[in-house]
Simulated assay, not measured.
Amino acid sequence: MTVRVNGRVVTPTGVVRQGCVEWDGDRITAVAEYPSVRDGHWILPGFVDMHTHGGGGHTFTTGDADEARAAAGFHLSHGTTTLLASLVSAPFALMRSATEAFAPLVEEGVLAGVHFEGPYLSAARCGAQNPEYLRDPSTDELSELIELGRGAVRMVTLAPERDGALEAIKLLTAQRVVAAVGHTDATYEQTRAAVAAGASVGTHLFNGMRPVHHREPGPVVALLDAPTVICELVADGVHLHDGMLTFVTATAGPDRAALITDAMAAAGMSDGEYELGGQAVTVADGVARLARDGAIAGSTLTMDAALRHAVNAGIPIADAARMVATTPARAIGLGDRVGALQVGLRADLVVLDDDLSVVRVLRGGSWVE
Rank of each mutant, 00 (worst) to 15 (best):
E275L: 09
G25V: 01
V16E: 03
R162V: 06
D66F: 11
W42R: 08
L259S: 04
H213L: 13
G268V: 00
L145I: 05
P119M: 06
G218H: 04
T173D: 00
G298Y: 10
A123D: 15
E147H: 07
A340T: 05
D255C: 09
L276Q: 06
G63T: 07
W367M: 04
G278A: 07
V220G: 08
R360C: 07
Y120W: 15
H241S: 12
A267I: 07
P217H: 03
G237P: 08
T300H: 13
G253Q: 06
A325V: 11
V343E: 14
G237H: 12
M95A: 09
V359T: 13
C231E: 11
H241K: 08
V359G: 07
H78D: 10
M1A: 12
D49F: 06
F102W: 07
D242R: 13
R289M: 04
M269C: 15
H115G: 06
G151I: 06
G73Y: 07
G127Y: 03
Q129L: 10
M1H: 11
R363F: 11
L87A: 11
L307G: 13
G278T: 08
H214I: 13
G149D: 00
L259K: 00
R292F: 04
V212C: 13
L224W: 04
H183S: 10
A288D: 13
V343R: 14
